[in-house]
Design a protein around this nucleic acid. Structure first.
Lengths: 319, 319
DNA sequence: GTACATTCTGAAACGCGTTTCAGAGCAAGC
DNA sequence: GCTTGCTCTGAAACGCGTTTCAGAATGTAC
């Protein structure tokens, strides 16, 4: 493995000159430039990224923190992140946390130890107070709501999104509406529930289901839903995968959708289209892209930004 | 940001001693050890991972190469990879290629430039001959079949898996069977098609559909399938997501499954269960885990390994 | 008392590219 | 002819932790 000093010796120039050639600095004579190029070709020179990183203090990496790698929901964001990272020549280090605090801390320690230039959290269990303690080590951006002003955020306006979805249901003639949320105490769930109570007259505490994340949870929900004596006429589920699990299981049990119960999903996964699931399409890929860009800009002294994106209703046959 | 030399000065010892304390080398007197610990605490010392990497030549990172981040199929592998990486304190750098050769080359250049210690390819367009040229820069493992003996491989035995699936269909009384594959020229597709021609008497070239990867492709397939005058009685699809897209769209069009056409999927995604899709469950997470381990072991002088895992039939209501 | 082993310590070199600084050579401007 | 400014060059320092090597101090064995 030839290094920059070997090249210098071979081309009979200084290491400085070699470095200048590599970085296309103008002040190198044509002749020496050629000698250096020849030497690099001859010895098969490859720049050592580690040394570069140590020298410049830039790793060209961001850590992406997310609870589950195998939930398609995060794939949408990561796709956007990856595309934006490619443009800027950045690498993404993925960190799966399963919402465990020590895992989130480990991920953020990458920032403290200068292993990455910034951190992007798609979802997190950590409080913003604690998250802020890492802020001095580099830019931090989140896809969640409620971030303090030191932390950039690009997110769906969950309150507005849920309000819109509920209006769609109301306009469809549904009055008794239940909602299905993911983690009970997450800021997004809180905003969604707030919209529910504000928007729906018949809203009741017991028609709020929490703790549903996956299609398996959707299957479980179907059983639980049918056990209730009194049931809402429509369900607004905060995840397409839960909605699809619910839909499939209801179907299997011979329950008609939307005649017996109407459902509206959330996210806009491609697979939802196949089953005619009505859903609120959220721009997750776009958020991923924007999260990367804001983190990148902040690294170069850009301002902390908060951006709130809106969702669009995608009609389907389930309501 | 205090460095090791600052600590040395503060504790009035040499940098060597500080390094020894950090690495828990036994030959440090109790007293100096305490002084060093005190100095580290006082100055808030954090070890610079970059310097460590430059010095040891180990990055503690692998690059994971995959075509699409947002296809749930890869999530299954990555989940296994992430779990194994966590155990060994390794980081995963994700590289999305969209099957573009230049992207795959860029990813492997990380290996050449010593930005990562190894490369794990979940799927790739690159030939094994070209892939082998990167082998001298570090361990390379693939989840695909047909790797040369210098490259580790952990994969599903696609021939056996497809043969088993076809036998399941035959035992179900289906004689006219069609197959739906992903990329036409991929080694796995070739093995699958081979199993098809070997196993099914009525196998015909025109009942092989190729180029179907996503649920959207599955929707498209439904339309194409119904346009055919002559049709097989059963379809074996090499991806659950294609199968689900197909299933949903057929349903929408009023085609009965399995009465009009039976379907068998492949992968064993959780969502398939919700729709009662019969499928061949492949141990993708397990493969991810094994891929990490084999790459890791190879880095420490372990042997190149080839491991072939089998799939299991998961019954459903679609055949 | 001598020989050898063990424990402890630190200076210096190493991994490798970038950056700063000082200086030389040469051309243009007055 | 002299000053100013640009072009070009390289030595040395820097980022920071690890490792090698030499040496000192102390303990144990015969």
């Amino acid at each position: 493995m030839a290094n920059i000093r070997d090249i210098a010796k071979q081309a009979d120039v200084s290491v400085t000159t070699v470095s200048r050639v590599i970085n296309e600095h103008p002040y190198v004579s044509k002749e020496k430039r050629q000698r250096v190029h020849a030497a690099m070709a001859e010895l098969g020179y490859l720049r050592n990224q580690q040394a570069l990183t140590l020298s410049t203090g830039r790793t060209q990496r961001f850590v992406v923190v997310l609870p589950y790698m195998d939930h398609p929901y995060y794939g949408l964001f990561v796709n956007g992140l990856a595309k934006a990272a490619l443009v800027k020549g950045y690498r993404l280090v993925m960190w799966q946390t399963e919402y465990k605090l020590d895992q989130e801390r480990q991920a953020l320690d990458l920032l403290r130890h200068r292993e990455v230039d910034g951190a992007i959290l798609l979802s997190h269990a950590m409080s913003f107070e604690e998250l802020e303690t890492y802020r001095s080590f580099g830019p931090i951006s989140v896809a969640t709501v409620g971030a303090p002003e030191t932390i950039s955020s690009v997110h769906v306006d969950h309150y507005a999104a849920f309000a819109t979805g509920l209006q769609v249901l109301k306009q469809g003639g549904y009055e008794d509406i239940g909602i299905v949320l993911s983690r009970q105490s997450s800021p997004s769930s809180i905003a969604r529930q707030r919209a529910y109570f504000d928007e729906v007259a018949s809203a009741r505490e017991r028609w709020v289901w929490t703790g549903y994340l996956t299609s398996e949870d959707g299957i479980r929900l179907a059983a639980e839903f049918l056990q209730r004596k009194e049931r809402p006429r429509a369900l607004f589920l905060s995840s397409d995968y839960v909605a699809l699990g619910f839909l499939g299981e209801m179907h299997r049990r011979g329950v008609r959708i939307p005649e017996d119960v109407a459902i509206l999903g959330f996210d806009g996964h491609p697979i939802s289209q196949a089953f005619g699931l009505a859903t609120m399409h959220a721009p997750h890929e776009e958020i991923g892209r924007a999260l990367f860009d804001v983190t990148f800009d902040e690294m170069d002294g850009g301002a902390v930004r908060t951006q709130s994106l809106t969702v669009t209703y995608f009609p389907g046959m389930t309501l």
